[in-house]
Design a protein around this nucleic acid. Structure first.
Length: 109
DNA sequence: AGGTTGACTTCCC
DNA sequence: CGGGAAGCCAACC
């Protein structure tokens, strides 16, 4: 295996893959875990390349638990369906009980 | 080599 | 308390 693109993207993918089942996290948390807390947007940008990868991008939401990136998925509610499939309740693109489902890589890892 | 974008975050009014 | 604007860093063109 060889480094594909810049390491940042791969790192983001790696962290997202480590998200436990039925849990969610935020872009800022991942960015912070990578040492770039201010690069939250970069994490979202990295998810742009998550297509075709083994990255559960649907488990990554913004700081408010809102499915901001759901618009980037194929369907309109595909992201929500995936989350509900894991037992996460999502209403109006808003994850219910988000605080309880929140998974912080810096804290958990 | 430089400028723009972006699935965010946070401060300010 | 609510909305708006700026900031941030890395990748892409």
């Amino acid at each position: 295996m060889k480094p594909e693109t810049s390491g940042f993207f791969e790192k983001v993918y790696d962290v997202v893959r480590q998200i436990p089942y039925g849990r969610v996290t935020s872009y800022g948390a991942i960015a912070k875990y990578l040492g770039a807390a201010k690069s939250a947007r970069i994490v979202g940008y990295a998810m742009n390349g998550s297509h075709g990868k083994n990255v559960p991008a649907h488990r990554v939401v913004n700081r408010k638990g809102l499915l901001t990136g759901k618009h980037h998925f194929e369907g309109t509610n595909l992201m929500q369906q995936l989350l509900e499939n894991e037992g996460i309740e999502v209403i109006e693109n808003q994850i219910q009980n988000f605080e309880a489902l929140y998974w912080d890589p810096v804290k958990e890892l």
